[in-house]
């Protein structure tokens, strides 16, 4: 299952908020989308998920434009985890995860034992099986995010799209969640704010600025001090730990805002 975008763009209020995006997701890879606030990360993910329609270009799934596929067919290959989707309903974790079976069911094919098995498996993968009976409003932020990922997994997608999955989580849950996503048997595209997270947990990084691609490639090639200075206005030093070879970015300071804001 391959997801690709060609010449992708979207206008809002007469202005291109995203333009000229070319992208091909390779099988099993983790692609991180990074960029400053308002650079178009969420917009790109929503176009890739088929939630919003592109103004220019197209997103294709195995060569077929998303527009030519039914929503149901898309949802069987592509699952999208939004930022902070909430509900006021008295739902259990299991109820929420069972929603993931929606694209596989219809009036003539009701929820059956095979679906229950998929849901069990999805719950187990995100370590939420022991909490399956808990009500939504009693869950912590991290538990809710894991439940959303389990719901996405219950769709049995080949590709997972995640919009800032670590938002509002403490550092331990952030790392736990990224490690979990790393282990999942899917290709994944995720918008991330933390450049070190993108370095550590992504195979490739797409760097966006003002809706355009600045660079696309392996993290050490894209996230260089010079590029980060140019795009984010932040001075960083790249540091490679001699013991394990892990590369991390250390913030040294930021360029005064009056020098970068147009």
């Amino acid at each position: 299952m391959s997801l690709a975008a060609r010449g992708l763009g979207r206008d809002a209020g007469g202005r291109a908020i995203l333009d000229g995006i070319d992208l091909a997701l390779t099988l099993g890879e983790r692609l991180g989308i990074v960029g400053p606030n308002g650079s178009g990360k969420s917009t790109l993910l929503r176009l890739l998920a088929g939630i919003d329609r592109p103004t220019r270009g197209a997103v294709t799934l195995d060569g077929t434009p998303l527009r030519a596929l039914s929503r149901r067919a898309v949802a069987r290959s592509l699952a999208f985890v939004e930022q902070q989707a909430e509900t006021a309903e008295r739902l259990t974790v299991r109820d929420a995860v069972e929603l993931g079976r929606t694209p596989h069911l219809d009036a003539l094919r009701p929820f059956g034992p095979a679906d229950a098995a998929v849901v069990d498996d999805a719950l187990a993968r995100v370590d939420m099986a022991p909490l399956a009976g808990r009500l939504w409003h009693t869950l912590s932020g991290g538990e809710r995010q894991r439940t959303h990922i389990a719901r996405a997994l219950a769709q049995e997608p080949a590709i997972l799209l995640l919009d800032e999955p670590t938002n509002h989580l403490d550092i331990r849950h952030q790392i736990g969640l990224l490690a979990l996503i790393r282990r999942l048997p899917v290709s994944a595209v995720m918008a991330l704010h933390d450049l070190n997270h993108a370095s550590l947990y992504c195979d490739r990084v797409l760097l966006l600025q003002a809706g355009r691609v600045v660079a696309l490639g392996p993290p050490p090639e894209v996230l260089t001090p010079a590029t980060i200075r140019a795009v984010f206005g932040v001075e960083v030093a790249a540091h490679v730990d001699p013991r394990d070879g892990v590369r991390s970015l250390l913030v040294k300071g930021h360029i005064p805002f009056e020098e970068t804001t147009p």
């Binding site: 929503r46 929503r71 149901r72 939004e82 929603l99 069911l105």
Partner: peptide, 18 residues
């Protein structure tokens, strides 16, 4: 099923194939 799928909003329902 569609009514259930709206639990987390219209975008979530769309990504569930509605």
């Amino acid at each position: 099923r569609a009514l259930d799928a709206f639990t987390f909003g219209a975008d979530a329902a769309a990504s569930l194939g509605v």
